[in-house]
């Protein structure tokens, strides 16, 4: 049974989450020569019923965070607390219950569905692992209901994934994610493989389901417009760390981290009149390797504001002192030594 949990209490608390993938050399005697620091000290809260968007470019660690949240990967260090309890310390039995409540929707509807299974089997498979959720005789009906909820014809039960379009396949993935009545859905780039006209349908569906079932979302994407549309709060990641986090207004209307500013200015607007060409910040160079991140602030090698201080010490993710008393959207956490300067 799920115990009552305060509305304002975060349902998920992530503290100093770290995931390093070892780099090894040698075939006979393998030795570790370094580590890819995919996620390197990430902390955030997820409140019940809200959507937290995580944005960042490829290699920033956002997908690894997703896999850690649903226990597909084990963290190297740090805590994931679900309703106040550290997931790592739970008994096998309690862990099963947690995993049931945190489900994932994957990016690629073409490779994440087993091509040899019917849609009915794919959506119903979670019941095999968690039989307590639906008794055997009831499963077929449950699967039909789920297909109906995500806007697919329940008669399609016996079809195979290849008989569906990309958008329909993503609906199948969502139906499967909903099967166990989870509280949290972690969606990793759920619409980026879809055509524009279909993308909007899936986004609208996800919003509707959130309201209907009181779901909390961690919505991971590289498309800043999509993330703004669906998120209540947004975290921006760069090279394994969160560089800025706040409400959607705070991040989009008053970004204080140079990386967020550059990212936002680079987003093309489908409106030639509204072009912000002159304000565009074009970053130089590429993202450094996560196996060998720069000292201090990781963004400093591409930052136009970087000074000596940035190489020496890593700025903590905190509300800048100058904005501590501010009442507007400037007051939110940002990991930049110069966050208070325009």
């Amino acid at each position: 049974m799920v115990e009552p949990w305060g509305r304002n209490e975060p349902i998920l608390q992530v503290r100093n989450l770290v995931k390093h993938f070892p780099l090894t050399r040698g075939a006979l005697i393998r030795r570790q020569v370094g580590a890819v620091r995919a996620v390197d000290g990430v902390s955030f809260d997820l409140r019940a019923g809200e959507t937290l968007g995580i944005v960042g470019e490829s290699g920033c660690g956002k997908s690894t965070v997703a896999r850690l949240l649903v226990s597909l990967e084990r963290p190297t260090a740090g805590e994931i607390r679900y309703r106040g309890e550290d997931v790592a310390t739970l008994s096998a039995r309690a862990l099963r219950a947690v995993r049931r409540n945190i489900q994932m929707v994957f990016q690629d509807p073409y490779t994440s569905l087993n091509p040899r299974m019917t849609v009915g089997d794919i959506v119903g498979e979670p019941f095999e692992i968690h039989p307590e959720v639906a008794p055997k005789g009831d499963r077929r009906r449950r699967v039909r209901d789920l297909l109906d909820v995500v806007g697919l014809n329940p008669e399609y039960l016996n079809r195979y994934p290849h008989q569906f379009s990309g958008g329909q396949r993503q609906r199948i993935g969502i139906a499967r994610g909903l099967a166990l009545n989870p509280e949290i859905i972690v969606a990793d780039e759920p619409v980026s493989a879809l055509d524009v006209s279909v993308q909007a349908q899936v986004i609208n569906l996800m919003r509707r389901l959130q309201q209907e079932f009181g779901l909390s979302y961690v919505f991971i994407a590289h498309d800043l417009s999509v993330v703004r549309h669906i998120s209540d709060r947004v975290a921006v990641m760069y090279l394994g760390k969160i560089v800025e986090i706040g409400s959607d207004r705070e991040i989009y209307e008053h970004p204080t981290h140079p990386y967020t500013q550059a990212l936002l200015s680079a987003v093309p607007t489908p409106d030639p009149g509204a072009s912000r060409r002159d304000e565009r910040i074009i970053l130089v160079g590429d993202v450094p390797s996560p196996a060998d991140p720069p000292s201090g602030c990781r963004f400093r090698t591409r930052c136009w504001k970087a000074g000596e201080r940035c190489a020496e010490s890593a700025p903590p993710l905190a509300v800048p002192l100058a904005f501590a008393a501010a009442t507007d959207s400037a007051r939110h956490e940002s990991a930049c030594h110069y966050a208070a300067e325009g």
């Binding site: 989009y252 987003v267 509204a274």
Partner: peptide
Amino acid sequence: GLLESVPRLD
């Protein structure tokens, strides 16, 4: 329809 279905930053 295409123009209206794109989420926009602004």
